[in-house]
Nucleic acid binder design. Structure first.
Lengths: 156, 156
DNA sequence: AAATAATATTTTATATAGCAACTACTTTTC
DNA sequence: GAAAAGTAGTTGCTATATAAAATATTATTT
């Protein structure tokens, strides 16, 4: 029997009756898990009415420790790059989680800062997200996580 | 020095100056790789003017070996579920890659089939996608791929 | 057989992703 | 110092994701 137990989950999920090539299977496996992770994270953040991307922007701003940051630099630090950081920040401004002002030294630039409200909300989000991360990786040991990261590093 | 070489890639990519918790790092790492995989696959399919999802639908239809399939069943077999298979199939109908007819036995159902044009285009896409998969996983040995799948199976 | 429930698909609404064009400002070059 | 090139950010457009409501058909109940 060619079909190996380690692949069962994947083929179950996409209801495939044929055997997939190991490489194709691996890519699909990764894709399925990423989708599931995003679902879980989005659900966790739903109570705060922010998306994963908005949450990431807030984290970036907190990392600045009070130093203002420009749109361009937010973009560079984001996990999934998108051309439209403007609209993402708009949402956060509307929620009073961040402020945005024109930089006096270089009037092309924006100075974006997290507000106290944003920071306190972020702290609450962090707890929920950490719980979600722990749940997702519950079955993986510390060694598993190290091995996984080493393998992921080999991806092109 | 706490920062370990296996994490370098991640922190470089998101330009993080602070150390992330290993679990958080792993989730971000996965996310980065998934984005990169999707970018590469979309680029490979660009010449055919189809998205990854459209490509997946075509593969599902081919897997049917001439047996018609309903919308509901396409949805079940898709990697990233979405409620709007209708529009996805619309696009493929417009390109003459698939046909869609009302099922005579159950008029609620649709009978969706891949066309000869769709099948021949899919064959071309397969070659490009296989090359892309190989390139993505170039640095991973067979054992690496087995290990990776085993680890991915542990995800919740 | 009419009413109700269940199923399959489509439509609608809303949010986001990605690209390209555009505006506004700054730097460089001549 | 005016023209050209480069940079930062915004806007518009199109495509897609997602959820919820609507429509159409079939199956079940009474």
């Amino acid at each position: 029997m060619y079909k190996c137990f380690i692949y069962m989950n994947v083929e179950e999920k996409i209801k495939s009756t044929v055997d997939l090539a190991p490489k194709q299977r691996t890519i699909i496996h990764l894709s399925l898990i990423c989708n599931s992770i995003n679902d879980q994270l989005n659900k966790a953040l739903k109570a705060f009415d922010v998306s994963i991307e908005q949450f990431n922007v807030l984290r970036i701003l907190r990392g600045q420790k009070g130093v203002a940051i420009a749109m361009k630099d937010i973009n560079e630090r984001m996990v999934s790059k998108m051309s439209n950081t403007t609209r993402l920040v708009d949402k956060l401004v509307n929620k009073r989680f961040v402020t945005r002002n024109i930089c006096p030294e270089n009037r092309r630039k924006m100075e974006i800062l997290i507000t106290d409200l944003g920071a306190s909300q972020l702290q609450q989000m962090d707890m929920v997200i950490e719980q979600t991360h722990s749940k997702i990786l519950e079955e993986l040991s510390d060694v598993d996580i190290q091995t996984l990261n080493t393998l992921l590093n080999k991806f092109n």
